[in-house]
Amino acid sequence: MANTHSPLFRFWREFSENRLAVVALLIVLALMVLALFAPYIVPQNPYDLETLSLMDARRAPGFIGSGGYVHFLGTDPQGRDLLSAIFYGLRISIMIGIAAGCIALVLGTSVGIFAAYVGGKIENFLMRIVDLQLSFPAILLALVLVALLGQGKFQLIAALVAAQYAYFARTAYGAAKGERKKDYVEAALATPLSGFQVAFKHLLPNCMPPLIVVATVQIASAISLEATLSFLGLGLPVTEPAWHAHFKRISLHDERSLLDFGLSGRCSYYFDRGDQHCWRSNQRPV
């Protein structure tokens, strides 16, 4: 029982045992690095109209353009280097995905835990709204919202948050409802501690494991949702290259599904694997 390792260390030990998870983590980290350092890696800034030349438009991969560098993936109708555009698009996709995911996490978790904690009519009211929302596909809701709010980064994030917080709310509610019955919560209430303290110091940390799992899925799905919206022409304005806007433009549907798979599906899958491991290890009685 003299297990003096910190929880983080134990998580890492369990995580690192799964090679697949480690490989996935490396891929994710690589993507993050690519997105973060895109301006230093790729030759062209696709936002900078001055560097673009229509002379270079619609060129095949391997073409050496007016900038004097190789367009490894060719160029689009505006003469943008596709490789650069993909890396810059990665930045926006990841940024919107993570921002929307995190805001939805905070909002949804608060709603869920609050509902589970107060109970009664407020609980019923909040959770029925969530249920109602869950009964519609997220994409539908996002479409309507984007149509109402208009285009732009913040509008997109707002639409994604509104579409996705329900998943977090439902998960947090379920977990908190279970934890609420446990002795330690009763002990905290009997001390007595205020409801706020009980909810955030005791309920919240113990509801985290399932929430982390949901978060990994939801961040990935935020990215693909954003991609879908862009593909449908409701995403970011054309001046901003997000990943899937490009796929639409170059109409490489096979490649699209491949990359989609690579970014959203695969990553979240491995994220999940890791988190479930962590979750299980924390649940195990020592």
């Binding site: 446990k182 002795d183 330690y184 002990a187 001390t191 113990n206």
Partner: peptide, 19 residues
């Protein structure tokens, strides 16, 4: 009141595992 306190049966359940 804070003058009444309780000790619960199951010390595995009555302590917050993450605190």
């Amino acid at each position: 009141t804070t003058r009444i306190q309780t000790v619960f049966q199951d010390p595995f359940a009555s302590l917050d595992p993450r605190m």
